[in-house]
Design a protein around this nucleic acid. Structure first.
Length: 133
DNA sequence: CTTCTTACA
DNA sequence: TGTAAGCA
């Protein structure tokens, strides 16, 4: 009764290439069953893939994702992984917040230099007109 | 034709 | 990760 999928099916479902899925396996994020040389994916593998994709969207590294996904497999209560996930989310939010502040600061300086350049340019242009007349 | 491994970019 | 080669 347990439905299984081939690598091509999952790749299509998750919008990635088969190369990507094998890559994640090579990084120990997933470990599909093997029937001979062929890989056979079960529901647990799809769930892990789902978690991997989510982690990727949030900007986590494959190492961080592996740590979180592994806990999902270990502790059934899901408490430890939720705590780790929460920690990672806050850490991620903190980094993004700092980066946004840095970007805002640079944009602010750019605006200032932009205005200065325009002012200087207009002064030189009007000055040139007076000189030619 | 699809999958797998391995190697290189 | 993409691409490509050589197998099964």
């Amino acid at each position: 009764m347990s439905e299984t999928w081939g690598i091509a099916e999952l790749a299509a479902e998750f919008g990635v290439t088969t190369r990507t899925i094998r890559f994640y396996e090579d990084k120990d994020l997933i470990a599909p069953e093997r029937r001979g040389q062929r890989r056979v994916y079960h529901l647990r593998d799809k769930v892990r893939l789902q978690l991997i994709m989510r982690g990727k969207r949030l900007g986590f590294s494959l190492d961080e994702i592996r740590a979180m996904v592994d806990l999902y497999d270990a502790d059934p209560t899901e408490v430890s992984q939720l705590r780790l996930f929460l920690d990672k989310l806050r850490e991620r939010k903190g980094l993004l917040t700092i980066q946004r502040e840095d970007i805002d600061q640079v944009l602010k300086e750019i605006a200032a230099r932009e205005a200065q350049c325009e002012r200087l340019l207009s002064e030189k242009q009007t000055g040139a007109k007076r000189a030619s007349n």
